[in-house]
Design a protein around this nucleic acid. Sequence first.
RNA 1: GGGAGUUUAGCUCAGCUGGUUUAGAGCAUCUGCCUUACAAGCAGAGGGUCGGGGGUUCGAAUCCCUCAACUCCCA
Length: 875
Amino acid sequence: MEIPKTYEPGKAEERWYQHWLNKNYFHSTPDEREPYTIVIPPPNVTGVLHMGHMLNNTIQDVLIRRARMLGKNACWVPGTDHASIATEAKVVQKLRQEGIKKSDLTRDEFLKHAFEWKDKHGGIILEQLKKLGASCDWERTHFTMDAEYSDSVIDVFVDLFKKGKVYRGVRMVNWDPEALTAVSDEEVLYKEVNSRLFYVRYKVAGTDDEWLTIATTRPETILGDTAICVNPNDVRYKHLHGKSAIVPLTNREVPIIADEYVEMEFGTGCLKVTPAHDINDYELGKKFNLATIDLFNDNGALNAHGLHYEGKDRFDVRKEIEKELHDKGYLVKTEDHINKVGFSERTNAVIEPKLSLQWFVSMKELAQPALDNVMNGNIQFHPEKFKNTYRHWMENVKDWCISRQLWWGHRIPAWYFGPGANDYVVAKTAEEAQSLAKEKSGKDISISDLKQDEDVLDTWFSSWLWPISVFNGLTRPGNEEIKYYYPTNDLVTAPEIMFFWVARMIIAGYEYLGDLPFKNVYYTGIVRDKLGRKMSKSLGNSPDPIDLIEKYGADGVRVGILISSPAGNDLPFDSSQCEQGRNFTNKVWNAYRLVSAWEVRELEQPKSSVMAIEWFENRFQTVLAEINDLFDKFRISEALMAIYKLVWDDFCSWYLEMIKPGYEQPIDSKTLEATKDFFENLLKLMHPFTPFVAEELWHQLRNRAEGDDIIIAKWPEVKTVNSSVLSKFTIAEEVITNIRNVRKNNNIANKVKLELFVRKNKDVDTAFDSVIVKMGNLSLMEYVSEKVNNANSFIVDGSEYFIPFGDTIDVEAEKEKINEELTYTKGFLKSVQEKLKNERFVAGAPEQVVAVERKKEADALAKIALLEEKLTTLG
RNA sequence: GGGAGUUUAGCUCAGCUGGUUUAGAGCAUCUGCCUUACAAGCAGAGGGUCGGGGGUUCGAAUCCCUCAACUCCCA
């Protein structure tokens, strides 16, 4: 049967994925084995796969597949997140295209549309993950709005409320006037924008013509001013302390207060204070008991406090008020100014700090165990540098605003029974709420009198329970699965969501199960394009992962994306890396083609093959130990590189060439069997990274019994290494490379057999001579006591090697080469000798270090002598 | 404004508590080969004063200080 010259991934991938599914290999149930668990960072339910997912999920699959081979009960839980803001925005947009306004729908009608949308687009991303080869336990697929999951979210809200950790309060929130919702601090992007600084003068009350000038970037908020603030140390304004100023246009009188918060150098050193519309002013307002005047409607237009500007948008008012201030003589001047403005991550609207009644989680106490257990190493971050960032945040943690003015999500289980600020209860159901309300109010209240809070919970308020709720750890406490799978092992995610998600999962873990949610957190980098830009939909610079898989094969893409992505570093992605990955799968494919084509016969095993096998055995063991170590340290791409080199360089370029019989020659069975064993072990190491081609060749290489699949094969065992074999081979390798160089320099074809004479200057091990003869294509290898004239020569490990080829030798070129080597060696010798001449070095450095330097000196001296001798011979 | 991190070959990165490192790998580059496993390949080669400056030390890519550039987080 003709085996194709290049590996064709498409069909094999589909076949093997289906095979794995049929065999139920991805499914896990608790048993007596050690569990190994990963919960997927749930992608947005309506999302599509992008390169960031590819990186993230490939790493998870590598970890889970290796764990499976190590004999652990591997469980990778997949699922999706309802992503309230993003999904609701998409549904609103889709309805708008159909001419339906959200405001025309009831909550139930809107949710019906939303669920339709979710059913249509939801889960596409999970199907895409299958193409990548993700070995998730699909029977465990969860969605953050599934009934039982939602129960756990509501339970936690009620519980935290009972513990006094959830409270309702007026707070300055980041208001998105477009989405008409509060957004969390983390969803605000600060950008530098060119704006203007307006210098406006306020009259000092009780004077005829004394003015003070303030500088502001937001003149439209003047109408909400309730104080002027100066620095108490500012001599320019000392006389004004305790006086009042008249706010332009409104003619309101406001106090002049003094606080060190004001920077004397900024602007004029006078700050206008608008507690309703700036977080710092709000704090000042609290401190000085100032009035707050809220100027804006929810949509960013001015309300009645805005006087004649009522109903106009904040940015229009900025322009108009500038003109009015100017016309009335209040505007002193304007300056160009660069300041940072917050934008909504979702709608890109300018965020308006706004006082609003919201629900909060009080974080300080909850955060403590989460901080401690990362700092003390119970939970490990990879790379560790992220601990610093984490600590900084956790030590300064602020209360978490968890209410969102949206419909898509978990509705807040608070029920209002009256107009008073405290006329509400928190309960899971209307019935419970009713009895609580009766109790609280002392009145007879019917269910229809209760009005449930309109808001939903922040999406992260459900995803922080992910590692617990996918095992129903809250709704069915202490169940078999939560006991078995929790704490999970490794979490693979992006550093951007360290606070949104990672920190909060840790908090929830300690609060609800008294234990960490995972032992290791592996932070991936951001996938960037060649120009270093973050890959994003809006830039259109992100390749479609599915296209890449079709072009290079899933294995090729997996290798391409992992080959240069150390933990925590950004990954500049270029599709040429996938090409490298595809080439790798093809290389292995062809190695198989070679091995499969040999005809076995009962032959004596050549010496060179015996040595090759002994060498590769040891080489494999060495690299295996390295790979295991790299995995333990989460240095995934380095582990991949080690495997890549082991397969390509050691196995294909060296080992197979060493044992390869001549063209159309048979092979002895011992060598063939050993080779197939090696091949199997290599496939095992490859399998986590390139599962498809590994499974394919596993089955091609040998006839397999039912169920003998590489996905559940046993990861190779580490054995002790005979390092002397390795060092002997290194010398043989160097001799062979030198022979090849002689061929190349003299234009001698590979087919032409050469003679090699060796003058040993010390004991030379001859174990690999047969390998040298074969790989160098020698007709003769002989040990001599005299140097050989008219020969190309080289020195390896103190011995001289001669290849007579008098006719073509280029004496000048040869001399030049020797001189170059001589210069280098002399330079090297000099640096070593300088060290050794230094008495303080000899006295101060450890004995071993000095001994090493002495050996370097001796070797260099011997080499120089040989080189100089060669030069004289050449004349 | 506060904090953290990064800076080693054209690119992406190794190089642990300073000493077999006049610095390694992969890719890219260059040269020669279509040698029947693979040109998606083989063989060989070139390429870095380790961001600049200063210091500690017998010895610094590695430790300290300083300057510069870039990145991220927080306000």
